[in-house]
Design a protein around this nucleic acid. Structure first.
Lengths: 285, 285
DNA sequence: TATTATTACGTTAGGCGTAAAGATT
DNA sequence: AATCTTTACGCCTAACGTAATAATA
């Protein structure tokens, strides 16, 4: 019977041209390779080499065998990867969210409730989230609006209210509340990982420029050093160092005050416990 | 690394449900299987089983692994078969002929000229022959007419003249020659392996019935015992036992006297030597 | 002379089976 | 009691490397 380890040696020989080169690449002795090649020939049952006195070469059939061996080795590797991925998928709860804030309280709850599972999360477009939850691409989705679908369970879990961070000397600094209309035209700092808020800002403040900062540390620096507007939410931990020089003013537009909804497939209802726990803590109906 | 022999054991376990049943099917001991399963788990790097005290079961990941293993084993077998087929193809000269007679002198010539090759032959439809020679499905074709194709070499090799075998008492027994028109209406015996002659008979003698005999021995019996017409050609070895009670009368129609042509791909021209040898022996221009 | 494949040979690691233990039905 | 998995243990094969051979460029 064919042996993948031996086929690997055959491929190495085919790649390097001589047994000796293959032997040093594979860290085995030349006689071992001589034997292996005979074994492989025996396994295939047909001659694969033309043997000179001190030259070993693949014949035409041998090249076919090498091609087959390459495919087989690739398949084997693929199967291993596939099984590992399957195992990983079985043991991870994948969460896709429209925004980062709901994840902050949710992920710890999931981790503590499903100790044997790994929790992974990423930000996604809203349509993609629904699609992935339905297709099984992820287990849990977080959306800023409810979804009605026969396949899905959907419950509200948390409210998020947007505020704008205004430097003390700023024209808007004295306001008790603002609207996007008020903010439109002022330039803003944005984090790159803020989900659907990005698009909302571009939409609601078409006259503003946005400086999108990928690095979190650099963003904090800019917030402290610049006078550009920045945003925060009720769900963010209070950060005295950042807001020493700023005041947070609520944004009153409906779009800036959302209820996040938890969705999962109905047959994954066991995840709901964590969602309900969060919902009750937030006292949401 | 994965090991096909071990994977086979995994599949056997999956099929039979217990290690002990698998062990007796595979003619190995149970402890060996226990070890093998651990090896496989180690190779995949993820747990594949749920282990009860005296129960071993595949978990969900394990079933994936089994599916992968089945595929891999099938692929491996496929690769071996493919390589063997390739080797066989390299070492066989495949001849497709429109009729059996030209093969009788040709095949021995090919065999003696290409000692390391096996010669295989079969009867085919004329269109299929050209197609197969062009596509490489066979190396050599024999046709009752010449073919002009840029890819093909084509030379005449042998003439075949049809005669009809008539019982001595038969109405046609005294004739020096006959035409299909004369024969039409008389019922005939035919061998099943006579290539294009079959169709020609049906076409030229629409009023006749044909008794097609597969078994060669039975055909000879019928020729001796019945008074049905039968056919022979100049290329057949003289068979005194068969024609003791019959007389062979030439069929003069053009279609009954053909020149067979040898075709092969131009880059397979080495086969031509055998064809030329035959052609010269037959003194064909 | 340097490189390469192959053969011969001795050693050893590891693979297999037997036997036994532990557990379940 | 019968069946099954797992562990322990000892034998023995067969796989590997070293060394030697032969042949080539």
């Amino acid at each position: 019977m064919l042996n993948l380890l031996e086929l690997e040696q055959l491929v190495a020989f085919a790649d390097l041209g001589t047994l000796s080169k293959a032997s040093e690449q594979l860290h085995i002795s030349q006689p071992t390779l001589t034997r292996t090649m005979k074994n492989i020939e025996a396994a295939f049952g047909v001659p694969l080499f033309v043997r000179g006195k001190n030259k070993l070469q693949l014949n035409e059939t041998g090249m076919q065998a090498v091609a087959g061996a390459r495919g087989l080795l690739a398949s084997a590797q693929g199967v291993v990867q596939q099984v590992r991925d399957y195992h990983a998928k079985l043991h991870t709860i994948s969460v896709e969210s429209c925004a980062p804030a709901p994840l902050w309280p949710l992920l710890p709850l999931l981790s503590s409730r499903f100790l044997e599972q790994t929790v992974s999360s990423r930000l996604c477009e809203q349509d993609a989230i629904i699609e992935d939850v339905l297709s099984g691409g992820c287990e849990i989705g977080i959306l800023p609006y409810p979804v009605a679908d026969a396949e899905l369970t959907c419950i509200p879990i948390i409210r998020e209210n947007l505020s704008v961070g205004v430097p003390h000397g700023h024209a808007l600094a004295g306001r008790k509340s603002v609207t996007f209309h008020d903010l439109n035209g002022f330039n803003c700092l944005l984090g790159s990982q803020i989900g659907f808020w990005t698009e909302l800002c571009y939409q609601k403040m078409p006259a503003s420029k946005f400086l999108v900062q990928t690095d979190e540390f650099a963003l904090k620096e800019l917030i402290q050093e610049s006078t550009l507007l920045c945003f925060t939410t009720n769900l963010a931990d209070y950060q005295p160092d950042i807001f020493r020089k700023r005041v947070a003013i609520p944004v009153t537009d409906a779009e800036a005050n959302v209820t996040h909804y938890f969705i999962c497939q109905k047959n994954n209802a066991h995840y709901l416990a964590a969602a309900n726990q969060l919902k009750e803590k937030q006292a949401l109906a």
